[in-house]
């Protein structure tokens, strides 16, 4: 074999090898982009699942009757519904309580309206530092000026919607008066009740008694028939399932 023949054979091998490598590179690219795509699609799909788990439709029906009890708790239940009992301990200044209400509030209303559960709200002030404490006391005392029914729930929801940023002053008396009126609370009596903070001492006493008596670690605390609920309280579908199982 001459030198040139050897050279051209070598060339052919080299060219073949290059083609081979090119093909391998292309295959690698295809596999890599497929896996990346699959991973992104997977993340997207499961994120949608997360969104759905967090979603609950706004409750538009008629609320179960709501009455403020002499002891300061607030019962929302259809007449005759005694169990299961869902206790909700919450503070209008607490961000996690707002999260709870945003996530599961509508589901709780719906189940109470269907007579599946007796809901007992415990609107307490857990904070001991100002302005957190004074904000919370003003809000809860104002809500006590509403004896119950839809206006109570409207103002309850409004208070969470207007929750002051932690550490800032908020829930001013003038605002509380205005929000109460928009919520359907009746005129002059409500206004003077809020402005005089008539129920503040009772509310503070109620909060202290609740924290001590019910052994609350923090807010929000959600208990079903006395048993504390964990993450499921924050997932509307899970909460519904838990309550329905207890209602059987």
């Amino acid at each position: 074999m001459g030198k040139s023949a050897r050279d051209s054979a070598r060339e052919r091998v080299r060219a073949e090898r290059e083609r081979e490598e090119k093909r391998a590179r292309r295959n690698r690219r295809i596999v890599v982009s497929s896996v990346v795509l699959a991973a992104v699609v997977l993340v997207g799909l499961f994120s949608l699942v997360q969104y759905n788990r967090n979603f609950s439709a706004k409750f538009t029906g008629t609320l179960a009757p709501i009455t403020v009890q002499p002891d300061g708790t607030v019962v929302m239940a259809k007449p005759g519904v005694q169990k299961p009992v869902l206790d909700i301990y919450e503070d209008f200044q607490c961000p996690a309580c707002k999260t709870l209400e945003d996530a599961s509030g509508e589901t709780v209303k719906e189940l109470a309206a269907q007579g599946k559960v007796k809901v007992v709200y415990h609107p307490i002030t857990i904070f001991q530092q100002d302005p957190l404490k004074s904000n919370s006391v003003r809000a809860a005392s104002a809500l006590r000026c509403v004896p119950g029914g839809t206006p109570w729930m409207n103002l309850h929801d409004r208070l969470f919607a207007e929750q002051p940023t932690e550490g800032k002053n908020g829930f001013e008396l003038a605002d509380l008066v205005a929000w109460g009126k928009e919520a359907g609370a009746a005129g002059a009596d409500y206004e003077s009740c809020v402005k005089n903070q008539t129920h503040a001492p009772a509310h503070i006493k109620f909060s202290e008694d609740t924290v001590a008596g019910s052994k609350i670690e923090g807010t929000p605390t959600v208990r079903l028939n006395g048993k504390e609920l964990g993450n499921e309280a924050f997932v509307p579908g899970d909460l519904k399932e838990t309550i329905m199982n207890a209602a059987k």
């Binding site: 999260t99 709870l100 993450n231 924050f234 997932v235």
Partner: peptide, 8 residues
């Protein structure tokens, strides 16, 4: 477990 808490 709880998307609402994750968002918070």
């Amino acid at each position: 477990g709880a998307p609402a808490l994750s968002v918070q």
